[in-house]
Every structure is written in C-alpha cells, then in structure tokens.
Design a protein around this nucleic acid. Structure first.
Lengths: 355, 355
DNA sequence: AACGCTAATCTAAACGTTTCGAACGTGTCA
DNA sequence: TGACACGTTCGAAACGTTTAGATTAGCGTT
C-alpha cells in the first residue's frame, strides 16, 4: 500500500490504435490498413507497427469495429430447452460451425414460452447480432416482423412457423413417425398409444399426421382416447402414460413424440408395476446417448443432429456471406428408426395381457 | 420488379436517436436523458419523444452504447463439452440467471482442448464481454494473465486452476467420492475399479484422492492396476472397463469419475457378456435424467447443479455490480450420493465370481 | 523541366451513443 | 432592479474504429 500504487488503476484504459500509431510513428489509418490488409503498407512500417503492437499488447476493440462496420460477427441462437438432448446436440454442432467461421454464438433458452422468446430475440437484436437461428416457440410474436423487415437473416430450426417465410431446416417428421408406427403395427400392435406435445408447433403437428396415416394405411381405426398431449415435460409424459395405462382396453404400445416426455412414460410404467417391453412396448422420438446402454434399450427415431446443425449453420453463413436475395430455402432431412428391444412382437400371450 | 422498388433498400439504416430527436423537435441529448433517466425531462417533451419513438420504431443501438459506456452487458461462458449433462444443466441455470439480470450469454465449447479454450477466450474478450465464467481446461493458457490483468472478472466453474486466484465455485469432490467408495466398501466390495479423466484438472485430482482415502480409511490396499484413466469420452470409459474386466482378479465394482465415460463402462460390461449389478457393481459421478428410469438404476454422485450455476452467476454479478476489490471467494458445495440399485451387496456367491 | 502515374501514407469524417458543461428562462430575494 | 439559484434543455466532445479522398514522394516520359 505505498503512496505510489494507489487506486489500482481501475481505469487502466486498454491500449488503442492511437497508442500503437504513436509508438510506431505512423498514422492511425496505416495501422488499420495493415491490420485489415486493405492497403499495402511498406515492409518498414509493417515491421514498426507489428513491433509496437507486440510491445503494447494491443488488441483491437471489436465493439468500435462493429459500430463502424455495422456487423458484429455474432449470431443469436434460441432453443426451447437446452437440456433436451436433441437441442443440446444441435447447439453443440452449431456452435462449432460458427466458431470455425470466426463467429461468436449468443445462446438463449426460451423455455417453450412465446413471451420469453420475444424478449430474448429483442435482446439479441439490440446487441446487433448479424443473424438468428431460432427453434421457435409459439406461433406469432415478433419473429414474423423481423423476417419481413429483413434486416437480419433468420434460419428456422426444427420447427417451421406459419406465415414466416425464411430459410429453414427441419425433419420429415411425418414420414419418421409413419415409419415408427408402421414398425409397431408390423410387430402386431393394434392399439398404439400416442403422446404428443402441444400441437401448435410444426413437428408435433406433422408427427401426429404420421401416426394417423400409419394407422389408416394399415386399415386400423384411430382411437382418440389413445392420443394424449402434454407440455413437453417429463411430468406431462408421466401423466399421459398413467391415463393411457388405466384405460379399460389399454394400448399394447406407446409412442412418445417427444424425448423428455418418454422419461415420464418409463417412470409411469414402472410405478404402475408393469415392465417394458414385456407388458408394454415403447418407442419415442429423438435418440440420446443412453438409449442403448440400459435395459430396455429404447427404440427411437434418431434425428441427424450433425447434419441439421451444420445445414442450419450453412444456410445462415451463406446469407451472412452476402447472398441475401435468394428465395427462402427449406431443407427437409430424414429421420432414422433405431430398432432396439423396447418393442416386442405381440404373441398369443401378450394379447391376453389387457384382460 | 418495378423501377421504383429496386435494390430492396438493403441499406435501410435503422432509425437512430437523431431521427427521434428531429421528429420530437428536441435535442439528441434530451432523448438520451429520457431513455436513461439521467435527468428530468418535462412531461411535454417526454410525451413528444415517446410518441416519436413509437412512430419511428426506434431501438437503441447497444453497440454504440457499449462503445461509449465501456460495458456490453454480455458475459462469456466456456465449458469443455455442452453435451455432458452436468454442463448442460449448469449452462441452463447460468443462462437463466443472467437473462434475469439483463445480460446476454455467449457460449463457447472448448472441447477439452487448451488451445481451443485460449482462442475462445480471446474471441470473447475481443467482443468486450463484461465477465467470464470458465469451466477451464488444461493448466496454463491465457487464463492466468487475464485474471491478473484484472480488467474483466473471471469466475471459475467446477474446476480450479493452479496459480489462478479468482472467484470459484466447485464441488467437494474428494468428500463426494470418499462417500461413494465408502458406500461400496460397506456393501462388501474390496476390489473397486476406478476410472478417471486426465488428472490435470482439479476435480479429477480431488476425486482420486477421495478414492484412495476411502480405501485407506477402511484399511484396504490401493491396487494401482485397478485405476485407469482416459480422456473423458465414452470410448475411453469403454476401453478402461475392458481392461479392468480382463484382469485376472477383476474388481467387483467400478466407480467412474466422469459421466460420459460411464456409458462406455456399461457398454463394455454388456459386450463382455456380464451384467450389472449381478456380476459387477457400478457407480459414477454426475446424475442425469435417465439414471433412475432404466434397469439398472444407476447409483450416482449428484452435483447440486442448480446451486452451482446460481452461485457462479451470483459471484460474477456481484463483481459486475462493482464489487471489484473484494478478495477471491471460493465456494465449495457438497455432492449427494444417490443410492439406487446398480451396486449390490457382496454375498458368498458373488465372492466366487472372479474364479 | 514539366507532366502524369503509381504506391504509400495521412487527414478527417463518419458510426450512434453518453455526458459534461454551458445556456436559457423563470422565480426569489435583497 | 440586479444577483442568484434552479430546473430544463442543448451543443459538442468523446468512445475506438474504418475509409474516402487528399497528399506526398518517386520515377519514367516527352
């Protein structure tokens, strides 16, 4: 605590371009030119400037740069829940892709709530993100107007949005569920319970269609009491399953259209004293790391998370690279049914289980 | 494509404060004063300005603001892998906390690589983040100098860093593993395999000590051949487990100090034709949503992710609120052993298994 | 010797805010 | 009536860059 070292230079202004310029005895413009390669600067000055930068420990101020350039090299990414393993994986891929391209990623979780989403998007736009990748939530909100004002490019992820005409990458949800349910039917299942999230988002809507069409294609009736919907959370899956299992003529199989909800399904089956696949078969949407580790190994519809993330990143990077006026592009990827052993063929014995 | 609507106003400069000022027939300083509440402005002008803002659709440019103010209300967060469920959860909590405080979060994944981490941190500092939360990787790097230069506050998460003296929130790893291993010993296990990540990060180091101390406290020898280390990934856990299981006197239990690696452990057990817990007991670090859903229900050490995330956020927010000179604070939280059924008591029959 | 050309460098005006200090009008007091 | 204080409003200088356009020096032409 000497008299000299007082106040701990809180205001230790970081070195600026001006300091570099002075130290190198050149103009500030020359420093900028060298840093950006926008003009040729003589070997001599180059050397002096580089030395000065090293001596001073100069770091270019990206905020000032952003202000002048009108670009932040930062993008915004919003997802409903980062704890959903599908989104976790996709976020990871997207982050890597933008990292490679020299962009930073601002991540927001919207918690399946439209107001939160709007707020987050505003937050991101305030910070002048160059682009937006949105796994949207809800139907209206400010998303539409943002896309229309077209100042920042938007890529929709996983979920389309009615009336919002912009780049998107989604799964062929209808086909994926069609295949999964058809698989169950081939195993001999006739009464197949279906648990969905709220149907105001496109994947849930499309998956439901896939379910209905698979039944119809097999000449089976669609029993409305076998369809339950919840709000994407484990507890919703639990409740939905409880209801399904207490039907007088209960299903022999359950398909859960959402990953977190299937945890609830499994817990409900356990709590009610049944077991999978002996008493009831289960399949669900979205693969996850543990799906083939435990008993039963869960049959799932795996999304190509790597491709989804990369394509979304590419679409946005392409817009950011200047390709602004191309018409909106929609990429539809295919899911893959990962057949494991949580669904069993229905034999004579299983038929009588519901009795 | 009429002659009038050409070029699609790409350069549709967003409305600025100047526009508002003009529309409201006031000076730009008054607009700023009103927006920030830094001076009283008469009801009349207030009304005119607010009207103008609404008419024009003005949004304050946070970049310009940041440049002037020297603060971005953005923090940087780096984690080794976002797909690790522990980090996923913590990230989620942290994101929420900062969201509430009006901060944006830039997320980076360092992929357990020191160079990547340094690069990411530089990226974040370039963008003038106000603070940093780092679940660090490697030992040296620029982290030390950043903390010392002390221009931006840093909070270490989950992992301490030698020689880096700053705020931190970590688990009492040693105690947590001590308890878990002691539990195994009480069940009758004598040869307990231990799978760790590389020991250059503090949690791995501390957990290892916990393991050794538990054995010693019970008067058991520490058999080095039962300790295997890998690089945090599933495959490493798989290989390590394979090695443990092919020992002539193989362990009756395995503790995995890292969550992703336990997936490999379970797969190795399965592939080698054994089953858990009948043939071998398993416990691991980090709880996850599926841990009690399937068979076996995994015994784990659960970290208080909510508390960890919130405390880390609070430490940083406190610094950001101006409390810069307080000495570094280290928060040590307690883990909780979640006893399920992946570890079984050793009876007479089990004793002979290794024969 | 005057001219133009090129290459290298510099000057100064932005970018959209915040903020300090000055200016203004009005009312109070001696 | 002049001095003064007070509450509002404004002008203008920052913040740290980029960049268009001016300036300079060097050099070959005619």
């Amino acid at each position: 605590m000497t008299a000299s070292g007082r106040k701990k230079q809180r205001k230790s202004t970081a070195p600026t371009m001006l300091h570099v310029a002075e130290a190198a005895r050149v103009s500030i413009a020359t420093v900028s030119a060298l840093l950006n390669g926008t003009a040729t600067v003589s070997p001599e000055l180059t050397q002096r400037i580089e030395q000065a930068i090293r001596d001073i420990g100069y770091k270019r101020n990206a905020i000032a740069r952003s202000l002048k350039m009108g670009t932040t090299r930062t993008i915004g990414l919003t997802v409903p829940h980062i704890t959903n393993p599908f989104f976790t994986d996709v976020v990871s891929v997207i982050q890597q892709a933008f990292d490679r391209a020299g962009y930073a990623v601002m991540l927001c979780c919207t918690d399946e709530d439209l107001n939160t989403q709007d707020e987050q998007i505003r937050l991101l736009l305030d910070r002048m993100v160059d682009g937006l990748i949105v796994a949207r939530v809800g139907d209206g909100g400010i998303l539409k107007s943002i896309v229309e004002d077209a100042n920042v490019p938007v890529v929709l992820l996983d979920r389309l949005c009615e009336g919002v005409d912009t780049d998107a990458v989604v799964l062929d949800n209808q086909r994926a569920v069609f295949d999964a349910v058809t698989y169950l039917i081939h195993l001999g299942h006739r009464r197949i319970g279906y648990i969905t999230g709220t149907s105001d988002i496109s994947p849930m809507h499309d998956r439901m269609i896939g379910y209905r069409e698979a039944l119809q294609a097999a000449g089976l009736p669609v029993a409305e009491e076998l369809i339950r919907s919840g709000n994407f959370h484990e507890i919703d899956g639990y409740n939905a399953t409880m209801q399904l299992l207490s039907l007088h003529d209960r299903p022999s199989a359950i398909f859960s259209a959402n990953n977190p909800m299937v945890i609830g399904t499994m817990k409900a089956i356990r709590d009610i004293g049944l077991s999978c696949p002996e008493d009831i078969s289960v399949a669900c949407f979205d693969d996850f790391p543990w799906s083939d580790v435990f008993v039963p190994q869960l049959t799932t519809v795996a999304q190509p998370v790597q491709a989804i993330g990369e394509q979304a990143a590419n679409l946005l990077l392409d817009r950011l690279a200047g390709n602004r006026d191309a018409p909106p592009r929609k990429l539809v990827l295919k899911g893959r049914l990962m057949i494991r052993n949580s669904c069993r063929p229905l034999g004579a014995i299983a038929q009588s289980v519901s009795a």
